[in-house]
Design a protein around this nucleic acid. Structure first.
Length: 437
DNA sequence: TGAAATGTTGGGGCG
DNA sequence: ACGCCCCAACATTTC
């Protein structure tokens, strides 16, 4: 027993960086040398059909990058593969674990997992010490004066901003303390040993030029312009710090800061109203009779609806794992309202394809488009794909890029007539919601 | 973080 | 000069 190394553990999850990392900072300040670990969770990975899933590759490369950096301190990341509880039991056999530090993870599955791990550790008299790191304000920090959660964005954002201005943004200089990592040499697995292979997709940079953020308000809605930060995937996996991003927003662009606020709004909603993962936030929207035509769904997935702006978006998604935000709204409105296909189908398709996929934001966005969400678009707000094109892609730059054949004879006729689909949608929603016709 | 239908206004053509 | 009509252009309402 005495040959076991005594360590504190930092458990990496959605915080795959060494700088400005709250839990890591506190772990490194403790009395024990710190062993960083990561678990490739078979409960999650076994559900991925695509063994070239780029998100697994992204996690792998981020960890690999961390491993390279901490080799300079003669340390290593311990990588485990399997069921988290089983992995932790093994870790407790291999090491004399004095404490476990980790950053809060808020999704329903993560909560349940962390409860199990916490009770396992506590039954071994090991403290499980957790920190806020992936958000500026957590689910219960920005609530109404009566303590209840907001369900409307605007008042939420007002309070979020006022707290931000009042309290400022802390930083945690974990990078400076890396000498307190445990000296240890552990083999780092290959991606293949984890059961995956490299994808063909490219990852966006973890750096966004200030220039883009400064022009964000004017250019963010134009998909033909490179006007968004594309930092979603980095916020998803914590390869950048939300605190550094919020500071950037304060300095450079209010409208960009607003998007960070939306992110936390939907995370807050998912926490307080977890039923949104199963059904509508507003229950009456569960009564809408979706058409759910599988052929039309497939045409939507494949970018073959005959609506150039819709097809361009879906092809961008299928090709790159990314879709411009304005176009996400257009394709979501089209699927739910023009085709009357259950928003959960679209949500699941986005979940399978988006590199920056985040459960709360994706669910919130889809429910917004379907009209079923909190603070949703009214049910009668139906995007006209042609009007959206006129407003946001008037020079057709985006459409030409992704649907080069759209002015040829080979480009298909619209899958549905806009006017008919609009009227059909209004009738179907009214019927489902029990309104007078 | 809409769009379409409907209503209103005012200029210009024309008898 | 005047009334009438047409119809943009804009505003308001409705979905």
């Amino acid at each position: 027993m005495e040959n076991k190394k005594s360590v504190a553990i930092h458990w990496f999850r959605r915080d795959l960086r060494l700088h400005d990392n709250n839990a890591l900072y506190h772990a490194l300040q403790g009395d024990n040398p710190v062993l960083p670990i990561f678990i490739f969770d078979s409960n999650i990975l076994d559900k991925l059909e695509n063994k070239k899933d780029a998100r697994v590759q992204f996690i792998y490369e981020s960890l690999s990058n961390i491993q390279q950096q901490i080799r300079k301190f003669n340390s290593s990341v311990l990588i485990k593969i399997g069921n988290p509880v089983e992995c932790w039991k093994n870790i407790l056999i291999e090491y004399d674990v004095k404490a476990v530090y980790t950053n809060h993870d808020y999704e329903p599955y993560a909560l349940q997992r962390d409860q199990e791990i916490e009770s396992l550790l506590n039954s071994n008299n090991i403290p499980f010490i957790t920190f806020k790191d992936q958000v500026i304000f957590e689910k219960s920090e920005v609530v109404k004066d009566d303590g209840k959660p907001y369900t409307v964005y605007t008042p939420y954002s007002r309070k979020w901003r006022s707290r931000l201005n009042a309290e400022g943004i802390p930083s945690y200089d974990s990078q400076l303390l890396l000498k307190n990592l445990v000296p240890i040499s552990i083999d780092f697995p290959t991606l293949e040993e984890i059961g995956f292979q490299k994808s063909d997709l490219l990852f966006p940079s973890d750096h966004c030029a200030d220039d883009i953020i400064q022009k964000y308000a004017d250019q963010r809605d134009i998909p033909g312009i490179n006007g968004t930060s594309r930092l979603g995937i980095h916020l998803r996996f914590g390869t950048i710090s939300i605190r550094e991003m919020a500071r950037k927003g304060q300095n450079l662009s209010d409208s960009w800061l607003n998007e960070l606020c939306w992110r936390e709004f939907y995370m807050m909603i998912l926490w307080h109203f977890p039923h949104v993962t199963k059904g509508s936030f507003k229950p009456q929207y569960d009564s809408i009779e979706w058409r759910n035509n599988e052929t039309e769904f497939q045409a939507w997935c494949d970018g073959k609806t005959g609506y150039p702006i819709v097809d361009a978006g879906m092809r961008e998604l299928n090709t790159t794992g990314y879709m411009h935000n304005r176009v996400r709204m257009v394709v979501a409105s089209f699927l739910t309202k023009h085709l009357l296909i259950d928003w959960r189908w679209g949500e699941a398709y986005f979940a399978s394809k988006l590199l920056d996929f985040d459960l709360s934001a994706n669910n919130g966005g889809w429910q917004w488009a379907a009209g079923s969400g909190c603070d949703a678009a009214p049910y009668f707000r139906i995007f006209n794909p042609y009007e959206q094109t006129k407003k946001f892609d008037s020079d057709l730059k985006y459409i030409r890029k992704w649907v080069p054949e759209f002015q040829d004879f080979s480009y298909p006729q619209p899958i549905v007539d806009h006017k008919m689909a609009r009227e059909r949608c209004l009738e179907t929603y009214k019927r489902g919601l029990g309104r007078d016709l």
